[in-house]
């Protein structure tokens, strides 16, 4: 075995807490999650299969005429996204806990909020990819056109809010023995405002409502997203420390 000295010049190690260091750490965490998932596809496949099963079950369970289909679409879509998102959040944090990787992340000399934002980016990417696959399948099965720019914006805003709060709560739940069941119990009550606003705004776009009627729900989604991202930024360090 080579026993050469392990000296690195002091210029190669930058001091922590710089903005560049923060952004680099966010990018590193997101890159790590996306690379690992590209290789294993464990998280994506479970989310996708689960989502497809849910919309198939609803399709067979509800004998729907075209008008009724339009009225239930937003609810069915968001139930699907919320459940699939919970699966993804649980798995994403379980990977960090299984081999002690969360400790490895927490040992890095960076603001720990960078770890949170990195996980949010990767979790959001997984959820959006599943949504991109689900939307055309849903359109085909239910004969409903979902390719409305307003609806897509609502799906993006709702997903950001759900993942922002979900990543924070998953970081708390993963420290417990009952992490698999604890996350939905913690997450769904806290995520109710974002889910209601997303369902209402989506329904508004699908029913062709006036924008002024949809706007309050979109505002609620934006405010929810901002508040929960800010809260997570402030408390994540305390959530992950013993």
């Amino acid at each position: 075995m080579d026993s050469r000295p392990l000296t690195v010049s002091s210029t190669t190690v930058r001091r922590p807490s710089s903005t560049v260091g923060f952004v680099r750490a966010v990018g590193a965490v997101a890159w790590k999650d996306l690379t690992a998932e590209y290789r294993s596809r464990e998280l994506f496949s479970s989310m996708l299969v689960f989502s497809l099963l849910v919309i198939l079950i609803f399709n067979f369970a509800l004998e729907l005429d075209i008008k009724t289909r339009q009225s239930v679409t937003s609810g069915v879509l968001w139930v699907t996204f919320a459940f699939a998102g919970t699966l993804g959040l649980n798995r994403s944090m379980a990977v960090e806990k299984d081999r002690g990787c969360l400790d490895g992340l927490l040992l890095a000399p960076v603001d720990r909020a960078a770890i949170y934002f990195g996980k949010v980016i990767s979790n959001l990417a997984f959820m959006l990819i599943v949504e991109i696959v689900i939307l055309p399948v849903y359109s085909f099965l239910y004969s409903v056109n979902l390719f409305n720019p307003g609806l897509l914006m609502v799906i993006l805003l709702g997903s950001i809010g759900y993942i922002a709060v979900g990543t924070l709560l998953a970081s708390m739940a993963v420290q417990t023995r009952t992490r698999d069941v604890l996350l939905p119990i913690l997450l769904f009550p806290v995520a109710i405002p974002v889910l209601i606003a997303a369902v209402k705004a989506s329904g508004g776009y699908l029913n062709g409502d006036e924008f002024s009627m949809i706007l309050p729900w979109i505002n609620l989604l934006i405010v929810y997203d901002i508040i929960f991202v800010a809260i997570a930024f402030m408390v994540f360090d305390y959530v992950v420390e013993e």
Binding site: V8, T12, A25, V29, A36, R99, D103, G104, P109
Partner: peptide, 27 residues
């Protein structure tokens, strides 16, 4: 620690590259 603190779905080099970026190591 007794746990590896490494990601099984990344290669050895990718794991070290990830931690190098987290520690702000250039080159």
């Amino acid at each position: 620690s007794h746990l590896p603190l490494l990601y099984g779905d990344l290669t050895a080099e990718e794991n070290l590259r990830f931690f190098a970026r987290m520690y702000g190591i250039t080159n």
